[in-house]
Computed example of a mutant assay.
Amino acid sequence: MPRAGLTPDQLVLVAAALADRDGLDRVTVSSVARQVGVKPASVYAHLDGADDLLRRVTQLALTEMAERAADAVAGRSGRDALEAWAGSFRTYAFAHPGRYAASHRPLGRTEALAGAGPRHTALSATILRGYDVPEHDHPHAVRLLGSTIHGFLDLEAAGSFDHSAPPAADSWPRVVDALDALLRTWPTP
């Protein structure tokens, strides 16, 4: 029987906070149960186990990231929108490292379409329209943007840039500049 006052949404927020504090790999049904002062069975009464818990943290992260990105790009276009969009992900990754890591967990197509996936797609299309990238090339451009931005952020979070100068913070605007230049001169077949 579910514990009175405990909800799946509350458990997901606890799991997300644990992920940010301790790392996504430390989030388990048991760790969430300890955090809220219940036995693991009480968590299972609200969720379908660890996979369900992590899937919900992923959906939370993607929703939060879409909201922040939408706020960042509102009223902007071109390079300004690109910089704001990419910057919103970087800010989120620093503020919520565990949730950001969760955002990389794969979701099934149905889950992605029912969650924040369409909003991320629409935001990406908004950025690309500011560059006149042909719509048939949007999937390619979105993949380029995502792999560059999230690849950089993942390497930065892992400390992969810490061993050399200049600091990663100095490289970030150069990455955005390079993406801007590439999108302005998008090749047509």
Rank of each mutant, 00 (worst) to 15 (best):
R3M: 08
P8L: 06
P8I: 06
V12L: 09
A15E: 03
R21N: 06
R26K: 13
V27Q: 09
T28Y: 06
S31H: 03
V32Y: 04
Q35S: 15
V38Q: 03
H46A: 15
L47C: 02
D51Y: 03
L53E: 01
R55K: 10
R55Q: 14
Q59G: 13
Q59T: 12
A61K: 03
T63R: 13
E64I: 03
R68K: 13
R68A: 15
V73L: 13
S77R: 15
F89Y: 15
F89A: 13
R90K: 12
R90Y: 04
R90A: 15
T91V: 14
A93F: 07
H96S: 11
H96A: 07
Y100Q: 08
A101D: 12
H104Y: 06
H104G: 14
P106C: 03
L107H: 00
G108I: 00
E111G: 01
A112M: 12
A112E: 12
A116E: 04
A116D: 05
G117N: 07
P118W: 11
T126W: 12
D132Y: 03
V133W: 04
E135Y: 09
H140T: 15
A141G: 03
V142Y: 03
L144M: 14
G146Y: 10
S147Y: 06
T148P: 01
F152T: 11
L155M: 13
G159V: 07
G159D: 00
S160W: 12
S160L: 15
F161I: 08
F161Q: 09
S164K: 11
A165G: 13
A165Y: 12
A168C: 04
S171N: 08
V176M: 02
D177N: 11
D180Y: 09
W186T: 02
P187T: 07
